[in-house]
Computed example of a mutant assay.
Amino acid sequence: MIRVVLADDEAMIRVGVRTILTTDPGIEVVAEAADGREAIELVRAHRPDIAMLDIRMPRLDGLSAAAELRAGVPEVAVIMLTTFDEDEYVSRALAEGASGFLLKAADPRELIIGVRAVADGAAYLSPRIARKVIARLGGGRLSRADAARRRLEALTPREVEVLALVGRGMSNQAIARELFLSEGTVKTHVSAILLRLGLDNRVQAAIIAYEAGLVHTAL
């Protein structure tokens, strides 16, 4: 069972998101918050698998709440849920360690797909967000590619293989099947990749994989 704490200051949005998520029998919304500070308290109390946070909330916004959760309960993955797809929000969300970024206006099925992907250890960006990230990376592509490839020199050949599959949005379980490894071994490789490259999460790793030319599609 994937356990979720949902935070949004609009009650109707909470009802709608909860209704969508709970159509999947493998997902349970264990608590709901109306602001970022309450969300942090509920996450600490319930220790869910995922905290789904609206970006704009009273008392403490979702991005600041994500930063506190990353520092205090890093085992809880964060998905940002928002109406806004401005670059500033996307960049801050990635910097604060978010594993997913979903738009409220997206297809409802994306909520379930995103939650399941993040729960499996993958990263998930709404396709509209992924297109914006890749378009932004398009500027200065050659210099970014050279810098990314130089960073990959710190990795072993196996770690580069794993990074390429992370860049394709694959979970640890899927990577293990692809490379005929145990899931624990893949998890160790992913941890080593993040450490060696100085990254905070799989979304950032996927971007590096794209910049280095390991993948050629959206995250």
Rank of each mutant, 00 (worst) to 15 (best):
A206F: 11
V118Y: 00
I13M: 06
A206S: 09
M12Y: 12
E153A: 09
R136Y: 05
E28M: 12
G139W: 12
N201Q: 09
A66D: 04
A218M: 10
A98V: 03
L155I: 06
I134A: 09
V15T: 10
L181H: 13
I2W: 04
R144A: 02
R158D: 10
G167S: 15
N201C: 14
I134W: 11
R18W: 03
V160L: 14
V17P: 00
V133L: 07
R3G: 14
S171A: 12
L219R: 08
V215I: 15
I55R: 02
G167M: 12
I113K: 02
H189W: 10
L69S: 10
R141S: 05
L6T: 02
K132C: 05
H189I: 12
L152Q: 07
L53C: 08
Q204I: 05
M12A: 12
E86W: 10
E211N: 05
M57Q: 00
D9P: 02
N172Y: 12
A119M: 01
G16M: 13
L137P: 09
P25L: 15
V4K: 08
A77Q: 08
A66Y: 11
A147F: 15
A119F: 01
F84T: 09
R202S: 02
E211L: 08
A145W: 07
G36A: 06
A39D: 05
R141P: 03
P127Q: 06
V76Q: 09
R44D: 02
L6H: 00
A11N: 04
A123T: 01
